[in-house]
């Protein structure tokens, strides 16, 4: 199947249905189902041992699933289609795994040969330029820092112009500037229609880059855009701080003010659960002023992806394993 046909198609880049992998009695992951659209940056999150890497290896055709099905880059995953799928995808493991006795150029020449690239020289020069490694092309990989090796690993993953890229912790070991470069690169890949399957522990990275995230802890706990997961898991709330403790907060934080529930949060602060923060905040402010309270601040509480992650993973019975 030609790469052009696959990139033009509207079919998802990945379709995973009830996929399970067991090693003997132990489940690496269980009954996992999700879809990833073409050009989507999909975050795959989970604690250590959750099955993320095994999932990537399975979708990357390195490991056979125990049951379930998957379609990768438009090709059904099977024993016979491994090479065909691997031609259309690239996988960058957390450890880039470079040949340390070869130069950067020679490492990329090997992979250009394995992918059967027609004009490897120009392509290699292009990807090295993309990751700002062109001046280091003749350096031995063994003499590069971890961050630079990570960049070469990324260049290698870009080499075949893949339809789906699996990136396992691509910013691991990188300094903030290099991490930002990688983030920019992932954003540019999305613009070019490349599907990125991003495994990461950096939740702020996932929140910033990913259109949708999946949280895995052997079983899939949640899939969706970070914002949607936040609203599903956490009700909106207002954090109110007053100069002094309120004598009768129950008289102010009432359903009439749009407050469903309230709890004290320290000496003179309160967390109010509300359905509509934009409607409730002015009402509560007016009520506080009318009651003679000195309002120090009133703010909408924002839950991060980290809150979502912790809420799901800690509530999961598998967390105690």
């Amino acid at each position: 199947m030609a790469k052009e046909q696959l990139t033009d198609g509207a079919a998802p880049a990945l379709v995973v249905s009830h996929l399970t992998k067991r090693f003997g009695d132990r489940s690496a992951f269980e009954d996992v189902s999700f879809e990833v659209a073409r050009g989507e940056v999909f975050g795959f999150l989970g604690p250590n041992g959750a099955g993320k890497t095994t999932t990537v290896r399975t979708l990357g055709t390195l490991i056979a699933p125990t049951s379930g099905s998957a379609v990768v880059a438009g090709i059904p995953l099977s024993a016979a289609t491994g090479a065909e799928i691997r031609q259309l995808i690239s996988v960058m493991p957390e450890n880039p795994g470079l040949y340390v006795r070869l130069t950067v150029q020679e490492n990329l020449e090997l992979f250009a040969g394995l992918y059967g690239l027609a004009s490897p020289g120009a392509r290699i020069a292009g990807v090295l330029e993309t990751v700002n490694m062109a001046p280091r092309a003749r350096d031995l990989c063994g003499r590069l820092s971890k961050g630079l090796r990570q960049r070469v690993g990324l260049a290698r993953a870009l080499l075949s112009d893949p339809v789906v890229m699996f990136l396992d912790e691509p910013t691991s070991g990188l300094d903030p500037v290099a991490s930002r470069d990688v983030h920019d690169l992932i954003a540019s890949l999305r613009e070019r229609g490349v599907t990125v399957f991003l495994t990461t522990h950096r939740l702020e990275e996932a929140e910033r880059l990913c259109d949708r995230v999946a949280i895995l802890n052997t079983r899939l706990l949640a899939v969706g855009p970070p914002e949607q997961l936040r609203t599903q898991l956490f009700r909106s709330s207002l954090v109110v701080e007053t100069a002094a403790r309120l004598p009768a907060p129950e008289a102010i934080f009432t359903p009439e003010m749009g407050v469903d529930k309230w709890t004290p949060d320290g000496d003179a602060a309160y967390v109010l659960t509300v359905a509509e923060p934009r409607m409730a905040a002015p009402r509560v402010t007016r009520a506080l002023v009318a009651a003679g309270a000195d309002v120090v601040s009133i703010a909408v509480s924002h839950h991060s992806l980290e809150d979502v992650y912790l809420e799901l993973v800690e509530a999961d019975p598998e967390a105690g394993r």
Binding site: G60, V91, P93, P96, G97
Partner: peptide
């Protein structure tokens, strides 16, 4: 060396 996995993920 950690090079086996990247090698095996190619065609």
């Amino acid at each position: 060396q950690g090079t086996l996995e990247p090698l095996l993920t190619t065609p």
